[in-house]
Design a protein around this nucleic acid. Sequence first.
DNA 1: AATGAATGAGCTTTCATTCAT
DNA 2: GATGAATGAAAGCTCATTCAT
Lengths: 221, 221, 221, 221
Amino acid sequence: MDELVDADEVLNARDRGKKRHRRQLLDATSEAIYLYGVRGATIDKIHEISGLSRGMISLHFQSKENLLKAVAKDLADEYTQNWQESVIASHEGEPVERLNSLIAADLSPAVLNERNIAIWFSFRAEVNSHPEYRHYVNSRDSEFRVALLGIFRGLISDDPDRDAEAKLATNTLTALLEGMWTDFHLNPKNFDRDEAQRACLYVARSFFPDNFEPQPPLDIQ
Amino acid sequence: MDELVDADEVLNARDRGKKRHRRQLLDATSEAIYLYGVRGATIDKIHEISGLSRGMISLHFQSKENLLKAVAKDLADEYTQNWQESVIASHEGEPVERLNSLIAADLSPAVLNERNIAIWFSFRAEVNSHPEYRHYVNSRDSEFRVALLGIFRGLISDDPDRDAEAKLATNTLTALLEGMWTDFHLNPKNFDRDEAQRACLYVARSFFPDNFEPQPPLDIQ
Amino acid sequence: MDELVDADEVLNARDRGKKRHRRQLLDATSEAIYLYGVRGATIDKIHEISGLSRGMISLHFQSKENLLKAVAKDLADEYTQNWQESVIASHEGEPVERLNSLIAADLSPAVLNERNIAIWFSFRAEVNSHPEYRHYVNSRDSEFRVALLGIFRGLISDDPDRDAEAKLATNTLTALLEGMWTDFHLNPKNFDRDEAQRACLYVARSFFPDNFEPQPPLDIQ
Amino acid sequence: MDELVDADEVLNARDRGKKRHRRQLLDATSEAIYLYGVRGATIDKIHEISGLSRGMISLHFQSKENLLKAVAKDLADEYTQNWQESVIASHEGEPVERLNSLIAADLSPAVLNERNIAIWFSFRAEVNSHPEYRHYVNSRDSEFRVALLGIFRGLISDDPDRDAEAKLATNTLTALLEGMWTDFHLNPKNFDRDEAQRACLYVARSFFPDNFEPQPPLDIQ
DNA sequence: AATGAATGAGCTTTCATTCAT
DNA sequence: GATGAATGAAAGCTCATTCAT
């Protein structure tokens, strides 16, 4: 039995090491893309940043392209997990509260930070030449939109006559959030998360003025 | 005198040839970035697309990096020229009309097309690693914002008490337009320019409900 | 005593396992050379074909070069054993019968098969760059020649005046057999072992027309 | 007109240089295969032997595999040209003379030399894993056989009743020549071209004893 | 004894740049 | 001014070997 435990521990130690290395490679690659761009994110740079051997990339990901794809997937998964946690945390609240929470998640430093956003843009830049990236960088278009639409439908008490309004609000707010990300990417120093949050809420509210109450006063710096 | 004229003509022909080559290289590079991404836009590909010799890039731009920078500048110039023409054309109209015209310019196929947008994203992806690109891809932040702010200030008759509102509207609409571009980039087939235009106007109007009149009914498909 | 027996059994089992692994590696390497050429016979491929772990090659052969040398030796040993068994089996027969038997051994599928022959050629290709292979792939030149010469000398009743003829016949028949192997290697599908055997006998007979009797009619398809 | 001539000369100078470089690469690769085996014939070694730049291989042959194929083709072409020249030179002679000439060509240092033969074996070693080589190293099987058969048919005055004999003689002599090459490859120092030539003629003669006249005495050292 | 993750030297290939023509 | 052959640094990848488990 001791032997079994030992064997297990051995296995786990190896597996743990492998997993840790995989993560280190993903992180080092992200960092390299952030610092040097996809063009400059060479195996040499990743090796340098990670402190791991050159050969380990092929060992874990077979090819550099595979590694890049894994980074894209990792980014998308992290993003999805982030807003879904917020949805779960606020799922018993009022639509307005849930909306507030969802927008906050989308603007939170956990996902909206300089490194992440640089990587989003890098992969998005190549959706035409690398169609395999599209699925990962398009995530806001599928489940996120559904969640947002659900909130807006809740605001109008699922009134089918106003469903088109809910859809327009969804599209508009999604675009607005995308624009906020772009703004952050290009001017991270001047970006104000709270102001962005208020602007998003303001726009959302403007679609359904009667369903938001009490209307807080517009607070502008 | 004949000789002088001849020399001139020769010179002009040469200059014209030179300019044409320069343009061909810029266009071929744009096409290469669109088709293969910045990583895949090699001198070989540009040579292949342009039909010009390999050596010509060095001849006209000294280095490939210079060529890329020239492409970025060309893109930015084209963008700026496009919206400024719209501003000039509508400068005697009402603020609402000018706003309409400015948004339409920003969403027009002249600037918002698959190739251009792919290049925008490509350069934006590298603003951290190539700071020299930032200036070109950031153009909406400077003059364009000023123009937009001017329109909103016109809407509120330059009431200084409401200047903060004008600024918020400017930031919000800029972000929204950026988001529209992103949406177009990721889903060009499903993108509806008219719907985007209406959504932008709707949001602008929501900031100054009393200044837009008569308020057209919200037309949603 | 039980313990001793146990220890012995364990040891034997280990030894048997070791030997089996060694053989598996030799066979897998041969197969890899046959399928992928020496260049393509990587440790990875050998590992894949054998089902044994990567590290086992170092364990049993210290290095891949050693493994290759062991394959060469194994091939040579197998070849030698094959014709020597035939010599033993026919050693009481007439020279003609012994010759027939020796040629048949050289053309038998036990040694003349696609995989073996591919490996012979692979090692022979490298006798200049890897002199250590020469000894193994040259085997026909030593003992085999002696055996053949012995048969021819028997045919001429060891008449010293005709020894030069026996030597020429030996050289010629050896070359002819080599040529048959080459023919088989390059066109295994069209190769006819019986025809090859008859051609070899025909040539041998032509050296000593009076010593072969009764002369069978030339049977050609 | 001077300019045209100049342009031509420029073009020719370039083309000549290109062709010379191509040849240098083929030769250096052959030398590398001879010295280090196909496995050891790395781009580095070829670069070292040729004195040309590393990049030139890709420039002229796109890939190393292509270069190897070109070496195989070059070898085959050289071989074919060699025996065909002999056929042309002796085409008005008697069959026996033509046979003598053809065998001599096959054993001449122009084709049967250590470097060439090492390369033949190298490519033949890989016919299973690299089927594209087969065509080049198989040349003796097509046109050469036809030429040999033609000579034997001449010997028997195209007597259709003896055509099978002519075919057997062709196959046997081809195999014998292959065997001579193998013998030369494995023991170049002990190889005697004249003896090989005599052995081949002797075997050929043994097929058609009545058609060779006068029969020279068997001259053995 | 056996495993397979890890290593890094060395391989082929790509590529921006140079320069003779 | 224009060309494209030539260059060699640097890239990604392969591979035999090592070694902790």
